[in-house]
Structures are given as C-alpha cells and as structure tokens.
Design a protein around this nucleic acid. Sequence first.
DNA 1: GGTTATCCGGACTGGGGTAGTCCTGATTGA
DNA 2: TCAATCAGGACTACCCCAGTCCGGATAACC
Lengths: 157, 157
Amino acid sequence: MLRLSKLTDYAVVVLVRLSGMEGMQTSPGIAAATGIPEPTVAKVLKTLAAGDLVSSQRGARGGYRLNRELSAIPIADVIAAVDGPIALTACVDGSTSECESRGLCPMRGRWDPVNDAIHSALSRITLADMQAAPLPALRMPSPVMAAARVVLQSAAE
Amino acid sequence: MLRLSKLTDYAVVVLVRLSGMEGMQTSPGIAAATGIPEPTVAKVLKTLAAGDLVSSQRGARGGYRLNRELSAIPIADVIAAVDGPIALTACVDGSTSECESRGLCPMRGRWDPVNDAIHSALSRITLADMQAAPLPALRMPSPVMAAARVVLQSAAE
DNA sequence: GGTTATCCGGACTGGGGTAGTCCTGATTGA
DNA sequence: TCAATCAGGACTACCCCAGTCCGGATAACC
C-alpha cells in the first residue's frame, strides 16, 4: 500500500477548515473544530506556512489564513509541503547516496515514468475536488443532497 | 514523499531478471545476479507467487518463472501484490477501524478521487516500460543507444 | 528408497521513521 | 507592560518494515 503520512491527511483537513471561515483562525480554534490535537495542528500549520500555502500573523489576534483558494491548491502541493518531494523511492528523489547494489541494479532511474505519472495525476486534483459539504451542522436542502450524503457515507466506511 | 516499500523495488528487479532468462530460476541464482540478499529474494518471490505474478516449482531443479510477459504486468499489480491494495491513507483502504475524530472529520472518503487517479496512472505503466537494456554486458549497437544510456544514467543519479 | 535441492510458512528481531509533546523565544496588540 | 499567539527546535515513545532464521514439505536424481 502506498502510504501517505498522517500529517498530510491532517493538513487537508486543516486547509479545508481554514477555507470555511472568514479572517484569521488560531491553531487552538482549528484543533477544537477538527478534533485534531492542538500541538499537531500547530505543527501542520507551521509546515504549511513554510510551504507558502498559508500565511501566519503573530501576536494577539494573530492566526493563520489561506494564501489561495482551495480550487487553486492541487493536492500535490500539500503532499510536497508536508512530506517533501513526491517520489516513490529513495533511489530517484535526487538523493546523492549510492545504492548498495548499484552496479547490478537494472532499475536505476526506471521509476521516473512512474513518478511522473503520479505527480501529474496529483497535480490535476485540487482540494476543492476533495471538499464537500462539512458534515457537522449539515444542511439538507433537498432529497438529492441527502442521497448524495448517503453515498459519501458508505464510500467512507 | 510518497514511500514505496523497498520490497516493491526489489520485486521489480527480480521480475525483470526472471524475464531475461529462459526456464526456471532459483532464488539463490537471482540473488547472485541482482545483488539482493538471498533470503530477501526468497521472500519477494513467495509474495509474488501469492499474487499470481510468478509460478513456483518445488524440488530439485525447481525454481520460479514469470506467469506473463513484462508488457502484460502493470506496475500497479506489482505494488498490490507486495504492498497490498493501492491506497494513500488507512482511512480509505477498507479497514474497519474507526477514525478517532470520525464525527468531525470532513475528509471521510474524500481521498477516493486521489486514489483512483493514482491507481489508473499506475495501471497504465507496465514493467516493460520500466525495463531497459540490462546494464551488465551492455551492448551499444548505435550511437543513438549510447546517447540514450547517458540520459538514463544521468536521470538515475 | 535415500539423498539432495528447492520452495513454503511462520516467527523473530533490530532499526528507522513518524506522531505527538514540550519548551523557550520572538512578535504583536491591548 | 502584559497577554496572546506563532516560530523553531529538541525530545521521546511507539509502530512498522526489512531482513533473518528455522523446521517442514515436495520433487528430481542416483
């Protein structure tokens, strides 16, 4: 199974939460709203700020806010900010360390097309594509929406 | 960084090696040819046999052989055989365990489009695409091939 | 039928990486 | 000046993977 760090999952949750509210939001506030432990939220936000996805404001009444809309944030950017460059193996992510069986390995560099394919796939999906009506305080204006929610529910379980 | 288990990388090397030789091959033989430790090769081969990518033959003069040609093996199959189902997060891989912040998490099931995109990207790339002329005993029939090798070399480093 | 070569399945362990916490300092507004 | 908040780093505990090892089963050869 391809594994994504849990922090990336948290990052998506946090970013969606940020987009849902006006103005600045503090990490304790986001933690309370999402159920993610506060120190972890702070860690994620700091990482996202370093990746230029959010801006921070220090001091009293400070907090974080989104730099771009969700639809302008491909999931690849989030993964890159939290987990580093997108690559499947250590062999091909630009590391300079030598592979132990370098002289015999017939696969050197061959993962590149795979990495490219994944990167382009992830670049085409934005957070807006992943976003849906927030589950808490859900409004159901129509039976269609209710049906949609059932589908989403079962897909998630 | 998306991480692929090292075993998957080994699996690709082993499968390419299997395709390069006629008849049965033993795990010690493959280990010697690839530089991968013998117990690890055996482990990979057992996993691949369970995934129906290779067939095994017990007893003296036994060994392993490919079930299909490289061009008929998408990399997605290899990953699925070695690492399990292709999914980015534990949330969406069919596990029955509950997410700790289930009621608040707005992302339940939202990774599905991402997983689908990655899966389809990986299904389009076969081992034949990743294979190239084996580096040991390399033949260079034309300057074009020599130039190609330089490109592959630099891409791998 | 015995011997040899090989695969099979599981258990075990050490190391690396991640998640999560904590602390100290810097910045800003009241 | 004080309180609220972010910044940056260090630290620890835990989990998972990589790699090894062992006893057993199977098949070919002599």
